[in-house]
Nucleic acid binder design. Sequence first.
RNA 1: GCGGAUGGCCGGAUGACCGCGGUGUAAUCGUAGCUCUGCGCAAUGCAGAUAGCCGAUGCUCCGAGGAAAGUCCGGGCUCCAUGAAGGAACGGUGCCGGAUAACGCCCGGCGGGGGCAACCCCAGGGAUAGCGCCACAGAGAACAGACCGCCCUGCAAUAUGCACGGGUAAGGGUGAAACGGUGGGGUAAGAGCCCACCGCGGGACUGGUAACAGGACCGGCAUGGCAAGCCCCACCGGGAGCAACGCCGAAUAGGGAUCACGUGCUGGCGGGCAACCGCACGGCAGGGGACCUUCGCCCCGAGUGAUCCGGGUUGGCAGCUUGAUCUUGCAAGCAAUUGCAAGACUAGAGGAAUGGUCAUCGAAGGGGGGAACCCCUGAACAGAACCCGGCUUACAGGCCAUCCGCGCAA
Length: 166
Amino acid sequence: MTPPEASVNDPTGQRAETAPAVSACPPYTIATLQKRADFLRAASARRQGMAAALLQARQRDDANLPPDLLRVGYTCSKKVGNAVARNRAKRRLRAIARLVLPHHGRPGWDYVLIGRADVTATYDFAAMQADLIRAIERVHSDDYRPPARKSSSRHNAKGPRKGPAK
RNA sequence: GCGGAUGGCCGGAUGACCGCGGUGUAAUCGUAGCUCUGCGCAAUGCAGAUAGCCGAUGCUCCGAGGAAAGUCCGGGCUCCAUGAAGGAACGGUGCCGGAUAACGCCCGGCGGGGGCAACCCCAGGGAUAGCGCCACAGAGAACAGACCGCCCUGCAAUAUGCACGGGUAAGGGUGAAACGGUGGGGUAAGAGCCCACCGCGGGACUGGUAACAGGACCGGCAUGGCAAGCCCCACCGGGAGCAACGCCGAAUAGGGAUCACGUGCUGGCGGGCAACCGCACGGCAGGGGACCUUCGCCCCGAGUGAUCCGGGUUGGCAGCUUGAUCUUGCAAGCAAUUGCAAGACUAGAGGAAUGGUCAUCGAAGGGGGGAACCCCUGAACAGAACCCGGCUUACAGGCCAUCCGCGCAA
C-alpha cells in the first residue's frame, strides 16, 4: 500500500500548487474514498443534513495514512433514480466538493456526500455551495451534537459519536 | 391540398471559465518500485547510475447510445482432458428457396386472411401411427340421429282423428359444427335416385429448383375439429463464462510442485505349526472424467523414494479494443448479401472518466392579441463495462425519399 500512496501524494500536491484557479492553495492533498469500510466508518461518525444532500464526516485515527490527507466519497443509491439521475447527482456533488473542500475542509478527515432524489440534480448551485460550507463548519465544531431526529429513529443502536474524544 | 402506406435519417446548438479519463510526445522534471553498476560468501542490505518501464508538468488529439437498456436468441474468444461412431434422455426449431460465421434474425417467393389501394397480418409439418378431448343446447355430436313435421298402410270413418306398423334427412327447431350447395327431373312423400353448374376427392399431363399453381379425365359424395393436450416425423444443440483466462506478487500460515514406483486381486519370494504377516518384484484389474455402448485419451488412490521451491488473499499488470470494423467508389444480385479497390482508426473506465456552472439561441407546448408580435415554461427515452449479428421494449419532436386513395386546376 505504501508505494501507491506516495505516488498519489506527490502529484496531487504539485497540482494544487500550480492550479491557478485556487488562490489560497492548501498544503494537504485530496483523494477519493474507494473502500466500503471507509464509507461505513464515516457513516457511523458525524452527520449534517442540507437542503439537497447529506454530509457525513469523520476524523481519522489511522496511523498508516499520512495526516495531511483529506478524503472525499460520494454516494448515490438507487433511491436517487436511474443511472442517469445518479450520475448527474454524483457529478454535481463532485463539482461542489472540488470548489469548497480546498478552503473549508480539514486534513485528516474523511467526508462523504450523499445525494438525494430529484433535489441534488436540480437545486441552485450557489445555494448548495453555501449549504456545504455551513454544514462542514457545524461538523467541525467542538460542540457538535448529532441530529436528534435521525439518531433516535434510525441510528440509535450503533453509537454514532466517536470523534470528539480524539 | 387532405388522408394514408413503406423505408431511411436526426435526436438540442454556439461560446466562456473551471475540471475528469485516455493516446502520443527528439520538451522539462521527479524519484528508485522494476532495471543497471559496485560492495558483500549469501539472504537481507548499503552506495550509486540512468530515464528504457514508471510518475508529474506542459503541449497535442480523442472521449456514451439509437436504443449503451431488457439479457430473449445466435456467434467469436477463454477455460473445463473433450476426440470419433451409434443410441437414449432433455431442450429448441417447423411452408419453400436464398443469404450468413451462425440464428428462432434477414431477403425473395408460396398458401390463408384483411384493406378501394399502396400495403399489412399468420407457431403455416403430420389428424388413414396411436391415445385423448369436443362443454352447454339439442331427438341426435363421430361405425350419427325420427322431437315436430311429410307420406303410405290399417281402423274409426269421408273436414279429420287414432295406431302396437312402415317409409322419409326436403322443411322447423338446437348448435361453433347436423354426412355437400342451387336449380330441374323424379317420387306416395323423399333422397346423388338421375341430370346441369359449383364445391369436394383422386388424378394422366403441363409450368416451377421447390413450396405450389393449372388441369384432360374419373368418382357420385366416401372426407368433422383440436397437435399453443400427449404424440409422430425431419433438422439442430456438450457445459460455464472476462468475477472467463494468463502473469507479478507484501504481511502471514506452513507446506507445495514434478517424476518414478505403487492401493485391490493374483503369482512369486521370505517368515510362521497354522490363521496370517511382510516385500514396493511380475501379471491382471479398479474408480473418476456430460447418460449408455464400442474405440481412443487423460486424471486419481494407502503410501514410499528422488528432485525442486513454490502456492493463495488485498493489490498490480494483462485480457482490452484492428474488428464477421467503418466510409467512399465500382461490380454481381429483384433483394438480404457478397466480391474488389482506396482511405480511416472512431471511449477503454474499474467506488467506474466521458462533466460542472454561466451566457446567448432555441423545437414542440401554454397564455394574450384582429394581425405583426409579446410573455411563460425550456428538450423525450435514457449512461459503455470483452466484442460482434439480431430480436424485443422505451422515446418529446423533427427531416428526407418512394408509393396509394380522394379533391382542385390544366
